[in-house]
Write a protein that binds this DNA or RNA. Structure first.
Lengths: 194, 194
DNA sequence: CAAAAAAATTGACCTATGGTAATTAAGCTA
DNA sequence: TAGCTTAATTACCATAGGTCAATTTTTTTG
């Protein structure tokens, strides 16, 4: 075992593995560094991989036909990121992924994922649970979008991601909340003034 | 094997099982009929189960503090339904589930689900993939909510669920799209008149 | 089939948020 | 530090969609 076991001690820290399993895991992942402002993925590209964020911050966004950006997801430490619709279907991305803080990622292909699932059902359980949590949080966001005002959604956001504000621009937050930067600016002003 | 194998031939029609596995499956599910207008689940109740829709139509909705209803999901034939946030966490529902067309359901508890996963990793794969598809479709809906007008979302809806219109009321659709019934009515008028 | 109840539509008016554009502030880079 | 670039703020007007209230249409039920 020459290659490091960082993957196991960070991503799968709650599971334990045999020697052989560890080796398979290590072989399946590739570590990479990504500088701020670079694009990890662009719309139109084939999506083979998903990425675990060991450090840094990224965002997935969609560019609508009218040219406007809509942030679908932020990913910080211990999150996974990809264009999942494309990843699951082994098809072409409709979204972009941008690094917004220098990041360290662990990359794994869909093909290797499937092999891991077969070899270690525990891993499949791990990802099923991940999906369940992601599902629940998307559902929560849909409800928020349907039932709350922009101000409420903003308060909700800074509550949910208390540390993220250092990293992300206001227009990232605005495009996540579904308002213009001008509106967000007014909302912030209102909140300060009372 | 006295009990029927309906579950296997409908829910898991793409998988095959041993005699023993079949028995476990049959024992895990319970069939039930639900009349139109009845509530399958109410906010505040403990959520132990999820349901497979063999026939009929249901919807999950959230009632906001201001009393307004927001439809989170419709479930038709071959879909699963529950308050998933509560189901995954074995906690209390924040949503209601209403039957909007006489339904036949197969119910299974979370505890029994976990047993199935352990006994048959194929079943866990099946549900992981279900979750992936649900995840992708929620993401699509978030993007639609962020980037499209009410009219576009409506057209999108009747495109995605071409048959559902017979079953559901306009105010169900409105509360799914995030507009008032009055607005939806105007939108429909516009579309007819051109 | 008639009456009652539920759902959908319409109109007049209102409000939150968007669009455009100019101004200020903050971050980088030479 | 100055100068350039990017981001944020502000002001003014426009508009999609909300609110309230009345009316019509559809569905349900005795």
């Amino acid at each position: 075992m020459t290659r490091d076991l960082e993957i196991i001690t960070t991503i799968f820290k709650d599971l334990s593995f045999t020697q052989e399993e560890s080796q398979l895991l290590v072989r399946s992942f590739e570590k990479l560094h990504l500088p701020k402002h670079s694009l990890l993925l662009e719309a139109g590209q084939h999506v083979y991989d998903q990425y675990y964020v060991a450090e840094g911050c990224l965002r997935t966004y969609y560019i609508a036909p009218d040219g406007k950006e809509h942030t679908v997801q932020f990913a910080i430490q211990d999150w996974w990121i990809s264009d999942y619709t494309a990843f699951f279907n082994s098809s072409t991305a409709s979204m972009h992924i941008e690094c917004i803080q220098d990041a360290t990622l662990f990359k794994i292909s869909k093909v290797d994922m499937e092999l891991l699932y077969k070899a270690m059902p525990r891993i499949e359980s791990y990802f099923r649970k991940k999906m369940e949590r992601a599902f629940a949080s998307f559902q929560k966001r849909i409800i928020a979008n349907l039932s709350q005002s922009a101000t409420e959604r903003y308060l909700n956001f800074i509550n949910t991601y208390p540390n993220i504000e250092q990293n992300v621009k206001n227009y990232h937050i605005a495009s996540y909340l579904g308002v213009t930067t001008q509106s967000l600016s007014r909302i912030r002003k209102e909140l300060v003034q009372g």
